[in-house]
Design a protein around this nucleic acid. Structure first.
Lengths: 220, 220
DNA sequence: GTAATAGTGTCTCTCAGACAGTATGTC
DNA sequence: GACATACTGTCTGAGAGACACTATTAC
């Protein structure tokens, strides 16, 4: 006995700015909750989307113009209470982008809000974001995930600050660099970042296929 | 533009027997793939299931008679190619049960097969099981998850054997017990397991709400 | 007593955290 | 030269792995 069930994808797009971790929200253009801020999302198109991941990629591209270097399925949220139209499923994804790319190539009418200070959002989008933040924080503590919040080349200090912003505590410089060195997933590029003081070596992620996972948490 | 999309839940039910980790399969009673072995699964019932988790619990109960002490959403598998009836979504869950409970209370006509030696199954069920095995192995290395493969009270040696079977390598007895002692998520019960030699203290999981996670992997 | 398993003590090596030190740029 | 930031070296303490040791039961 099949029901008329609503199937959507929603994307939690993270970026890092000075203030910390932020999430992208768009004004809804249709009912329900027209004109309210919400996660970019949309119906699955069974004719064109080969799977939900392709649907999430399409929705993100259509609504924001962005192609994220990292896009991972988060969780599926479902039930009769989360959408006024009826029993629904949202297959939620999360994505990470560098904030300069977001500002240059992103949508003109988007809102970035800090993840720890969000207004009440439609549907169960607060819950979806909370879920995504928890996943991002957990996974950042034992993986190379925070690299995707930075531009393709970055200094070790920038990477350390990124880890600190995401996981929420200070790290020791020496231990952090030792760990990166042991894990060996970065490689220097032929440039340095110059500033007012000693220039810093730029690094990029080694061109491996998969996200690098650590066997311990990055620090306490 | 909504499509007629098929929404199902499938449950990967693990148990541990002498031979190692096994998964429960049932003979299908409907087309497609009638009479073939497959994961227990079924349509979401929008009228009665409050969400997909409730649907998974119901399907497991209906098809096997079992109520699992651990049931976690695994991943959602979707697309136009996985089911001959059309574009479909399966929200997959995995569950762990003690094998004695499974044998006593489980279905009469079920098949248990070792996870590393499965025949070709219908739909993308081989992929779903591979996904579940990977999740179980990963999570077992940094959590109390394997406890749910044992009866409510167990000896430390039994628990160690369980970890070894799931994660696939030998552990050191002394280090294992030190770790358990430090983490403090077990408590002794007022019984011992008697056998032909020195009796062993029985333990149970402390009545906490959540799965206990470690900050390091259990061993190498 | 022996056999077999339950359970503990201790040494070593690795690694994280703390922190001081050196290096290299701008001004 | 001063200063700020990049980067490295070293000490220490916590915990994992190895392994030998003691404890308690059945026979």
């Amino acid at each position: 006995m099949e029901q008329k069930i609503i199937l959507t994808v929603d994307v939690v797009l993270f970026t890092l700015v000075e203030g910390g971790l932020q999430v992208l929200l768009l004004k809804r253009t249709h009912e329900p909750y027209m004109d309210q801020l919400a996660l970019p999302g949309g119906y699955i198109h069974a004719e064109t989307d080969v799977d939900s991941r392709a649907g999430a990629r399409r929705v993100l591209k259509e609504k924001t113009g962005l192609v994220s270097p990292y896009l991972e399925q988060l969780y599926s949220f479902s039930g009769g209470a989360r959408d006024p139209r009826g029993w629904s499923v949202s297959i939620a994804y999360y994505a990470l982008v560098d904030s300069t790319v977001l500002i240059e190539q992103g949508p003109t009418a988007c809102t970035l809000l800090p993840v720890d200070d969000l207004p009440q959002l439609p549907f169960d989008h607060n819950r979806i974001i909370a879920f995504a933040v928890e996943r991002l924080r957990n996974k950042s503590a034992y993986s190379a995930l925070p690299c995707y919040l930075l531009p393709p080349a970055f200094t070790l200090t920038e990477l350390q600050k990124t880890y600190e912003m995401v996981i929420g505590n200070k790290l020791d410089k020496s231990a952090f660099r030792r760990k990166l060195n042991d894990l060996d997933f970065l490689e220097p590029v032929a440039e340095v970042r110059t500033g007012v003081h000693r220039p810093a070596q730029l690094y990029r992620i080694r061109p491996t296929r998969n996200l690098v996972l650590f066997d311990r948490l990055i620090s306490k």
